[in-house]
C-alpha cells in the first residue's frame, strides 16, 4: 500500500506502524461521572467495519507523524490522509 503523507508525499506502507481505529484520539474525560465506563468503551470497544475505516498509522521509519488514514478495508482504497495532530486539535483536544 502507499500512503500519501500530507507533508512527505506518497510513502510505502512498510515505513509505517499500524495502530487501529482513530477513535483512540477521543480519550474520555477522566473527571467525568461515568469515567470508568467511558474508559472501558474507549479501551476495549472498536468498530470493525467492512468498508471505510478511519485509522491511525505512525510514520516510524520517517518523520514520526501520527496520521489518520481513511481506508476502505475491503479494497484498501485510501481516500484521505490527515495529520492526527490536526484532527485532534479540530476535535477540541488541547492539553
Amino acid at each position: 500500500m502507499i500512503i500519501n503523507h500530507p507533508l512527505l508525499g506518497p510513502r510505502d506502507a512498510s515505513e509505517f506502524v499500524y495502530l487501529g481505529d482513530a477513535s483512540l484520539i477521543n480519550r474520555p474525560d477522566p473527571d467525568a461521572q461515568n469515567a470508568a465506563e467511558l474508559f472501558h468503551t474507549y479501551s476495549y470497544e472498536r468498530a470493525n467495519p467492512a468498508g471505510e475505516h478511519r485509522e491511525l498509522w505512525y510514520h516510524e521509519q520517517g518523520d514520526r507523524s501520527w496520521l489518520v488514514v481513511t481506508r476502505n478495508t475491503l479494497t484498501h482504497a485510501i481516500t484521505e490522509v490527515e495529520m492526527a495532530r490536526d484532527v485532534a486539535l479540530k476535535q477540541g483536544r488541547d492539553r
Binding site: 506502524v17 495502530l19 483512540l24 484520539i25 480519550r27 491511525l56 505512525y58 516510524e60 514520526r64 507523524s65 501520527w66 495529520m83 492526527a84 495532530r85 484532527v87 485532534a88 486539535l89 483536544r93 488541547d94 492539553r95
Partner: peptide, 19 residues
Amino acid sequence: AVLVFRRMEFARQCLWPGL
C-alpha cells in the same frame, strides 16, 4: 525503548496536542 517512544508520540500528537 521503541514502544514507549511510539506511545509518547501518540500522547503528544493525538491526546494532548496543545502542549
